[in-house]
């Protein structure tokens, strides 16, 4: 769930074209880049796919914080494989966005200028090795909840990117759970780290789905266009129902005194996260917003000479045969 609070764009297209477009979506057809689409559909998708791509890229940073301190060669290798996948996911998604007429550089500049967002979750710090477990288990677990249904999204390139991404995300979640299992059954210090990681990541993970959108007009439009497949509340409930038994299996306590099974609805009742905190994080006031964006800005600035150098070389290659004639 790396796209939060994606506002859908109002659309002012020809009603007949809109109806025909909606009929195609209702019939389960995929919309391809060169086909007609409402401007609102295009803009909403750019925002959503872009935000997802940025989340993959910024999401490397909290894990990179522990790659150099991974406690065994095997754990280091697995974490490297995971961040490599994430950069790859970013690449597929930027490519999907490019088919809608926006370049990767434009999207990057919008991120750095604060005009585009990435998931709120990556503004929380990874303080111990157990946090790397929690990120895989909870954060990737929450992301999968959203991404699995998005494999059926109406926009062809986005759907195909999601199919590839989902294959790898389930491996990410398993490795996270495996770290947690090892920690939760380890020494006293390790068990403490595992519980502490769950305490800190539980509510921020619930926030990943965004606030309730049951009455949101924008969400309803996105759902009709099959850009959004479920409401935020549906996905959050599903996540809680899946995760609580896993926490019990690990012998860890979910930090919610009001958590209990509700037989009538066939799911857990649980406490809402602190939405004031969520909106502060979106505004830039989370624990790591400044560092995350500064790290991306530095990579962009420090890398400028490399990108320019590669372009200069390509230009020379391009002009060389002409000069030789």
């Amino acid at each position: 769930m790396y796209a939060q609070m994606v506002k859908s764009e109002a659309t002012q297209d020809d009603p007949e074209k809109l109806a025909a477009f909606q009929a195609r979506i209702d019939a389960g057809e995929k919309i391809e880049p060169k086909e007609w689409m409402p401007e609102g559909y295009r803009k909403t998708l750019i925002r959503q796919i872009g935000q997802h791509a940025h989340s993959e890229i910024v999401g490397q940073l909290p894990e990179g914080n522990w790659i150099t301190r991974a406690p065994s060669l095997e754990r280091k290798a697995i974490l490297l494989a995971k961040v490599q996948d994430e950069a790859g996911h970013g690449l597929y998604l930027y490519c999907a966005a490019e088919t809608l007429g926006v370049s990767r550089d434009e999207l990057t500049e919008a991120l750095l200028a604060g005009k585009m967002k990435y998931s709120s979750i990556f503004n929380y710090p990874t303080l111990t090795w157990a946090d790397i477990g929690a990120v895989g288990w909870l954060v990737d677990g929450a992301a999968i909840m959203n991404q699995v249904p998005l494999q059926r999204t109406s926009f062809g390139p986005y759907s195909r990117a999601m199919i590839r991404i989902c294959k790898e995300e389930s491996f990410h979640q398993r490795q996270g759970f495996d770290i947690m299992r090892k920690m939760a059954t380890g020494t006293k210090a390790q068990r403490h780290m595992a519980q502490d990681a769950l305490n800190r990541f539980w509510y921020p993970s619930l926030m990943m789905f965004g606030p309730s959108d049951a009455d949101s007009v924008h969400s309803a439009q996105s759902i009709r266009w099959k850009i959004k497949m479920n409401t935020n509340d549906e996905l959050r409930q599903k996540f809680v129902d899946q995760t609580v038994p896993q926490a019990e299996y690990l012998g860890l306590t979910v930090p919610d005194p009001d958590l209990r099974w509700n037989a009538d609805k066939g799911g857990y009742d649980f406490s809402e996260p602190d939405w004031d905190e969520f909106f502060e994080v979106l505004k830039g006031n989370g624990p790591c917003n400044t560092e995350r964006l500064a790290a991306r800005q530095k990579a962009w600035d420090d890398g400028a000479w490399v990108r320019d150098g590669l372009m200069a070389h390509a230009a020379k290659q391009h002009s060389a045969p002409v000069a030789a004639e």
């Binding site: 890229i57 950069a87 790290a295």
Partner: peptide, 15 residues
């Protein structure tokens, strides 16, 4: 090389 995680000049180089 792993110290570069998330800091490369272009995404292809991160990978």
């Amino acid at each position: 090389v792993s110290e570069w995680c998330g800091q490369a000049p272009v995404l292809e180089e991160d990978i």
